[in-house]
Write a protein that binds this DNA or RNA. Structure first.
Lengths: 224, 224
DNA sequence: ATCGCAATCTTGACGCTGTCAAGATTAGAC
DNA sequence: GTCTAATCTTGACAGCGTCAAGATTGCGAT
């Protein structure tokens, strides 16, 4: 633990971390390179030794977002070995949880402030890794008769589109009180997922068989 | 047609129009109040006579986006009277077309740069109107046995989530070449929609019965 | 008709932003 | 121990959103 050196030692990661924190607290609007630098205790141009420009820092933050999603999904797969439907539902739920617990980070990661993804191969790689995990869950579900047969990547797009669309609309306030008064977010998610599954899936039928969910992110209560 | 007066006459709408154009050409990053003002031929603070701040202009631009979506959906309903499945598929397709033809405007409209929607009642009203149209299509489809029975607004969320999620992932580059090489965007959309419908729906079965589609927005070819 | 007011638009300024140029500091290879 | 490249700082610039003050003008009341 160095006290105060000219060379920071691990400034790059410190900047990414500072950026994610500012994003969480102040939203995408409050994220500036100068504030990130200040938070890391360096001058306002120090970031340029590690990032070509602001976009490049944002790309790094997006990568961390995808890494989080990947790790959440991977954790779900481990936790529900041999239970394809649970992997599907809880994987989707973990995705929603992440989005609701850190909306700004989620938006930056997937609703991307980031143009020209092609310039950031590390970003592409990590997002591929995340998609690959979804495909894996889909394949497991197909083998178990939970999802339709067919090309797993195409099926994965349908599944991911549903979940991602739902959480996007939710974050953008496009799902209104008149609905959120009657149903919890989890029930609505399951209602969406019920369309893609071959087996019967309702909030009631699923909740009967589910254990108390333990998640990294605290449950977000439905706004009244 | 006034030539050049001190008072513009219809500056508010001119600013909205200029904003949408800049958005289309330069993306959300290139949208600044000063540039919008310049494009409308007024000084850099003139917009403040019509909009409280930048957010307020963006809200107006979002409203126009929702209006466009609403009109597209309404046009589809008119064009396919008595054909619920077509209303569903072509409505979704129109949504995708708008998003692909003007990604920045679509993103601003629905992936919203706009926080605190509550401060913009006109925005809320127009987005409600759009959602109401979706609910209408859903009800028609339910009556025809094309969609599952149940609360139409909940079903509408599932449908809209699927379509919106698909187009969002597409715009963010999250649907990869390995898939887009094999399928057109329209086929992938229909594949997603097939999950929500009760009737059989495949790109092949649907395309056999579809007329050559005429749309306001030109078809976007699938990137090779 | 014109007076006066309120709406509209301009000029000027402020602090904040991303980015570039030039120089200071230091870690690590030889 | 010296040299070099990586790292960080200081200073500057234009563009941004926004506020304050003042100029211009359309329009209703008189």
């Amino acid at each position: 633990m160095p006290v105060k050196k000219y060379h920071h030692g691990d400034l790059k990661n410190a900047l990414i971390k500072a950026g994610i924190e500012i994003l969480s607290k102040e939203g995408v609007h409050g994220l500036s390179l100068r504030k990130v630098a200040q938070k890391a205790g360096v001058s306002h141009t120090a970031p340029y030794s590690h990032f070509a420009d602001k976009q490049s820092l944002i790309a790094a933050i997006s990568i961390e977002g995808f890494r989080t999603i990947y790790e959440l999904l991977d954790g779900v797969i481990q936790r529900y070995q041999g239970k394809p439907l649970r992997q599907l539902v809880e994987g989707a739920w973990a995705y929603v949880q992440f989005a609701l617990s850190d909306p700004a980070h989620f938006k930056v990661t997937l609703s991307s402030v980031l143009e020209r993804e092609k310039d950031y191969p590390a970003f592409v790689e990590m997002s591929h890794k995340g998609f690959g995990t979804v495909v894996g869950i889909v394949e497991t579900c197909q083998a178990a008769g939970v999802l339709r047969p067919g090309p797993a990547d195409v099926e994965a797009i349908s599944v991911w589109s549903t979940v991602h669309g739902f959480v996007s609309l939710l974050l953008e306030g496009q799902i209104y009180h008149s609905i959120l008064e009657r149903y919890t977010v989890r029930e609505l998610l399951i209602s969406c997922l019920a369309h893609v599954t071959l087996v019967e899936l309702t909030p009631e039928s699923y909740s009967e068989m589910e254990p108390s969910g333990i998640y990294i992110y605290p449950a977000i209560s439905t706004p009244a």
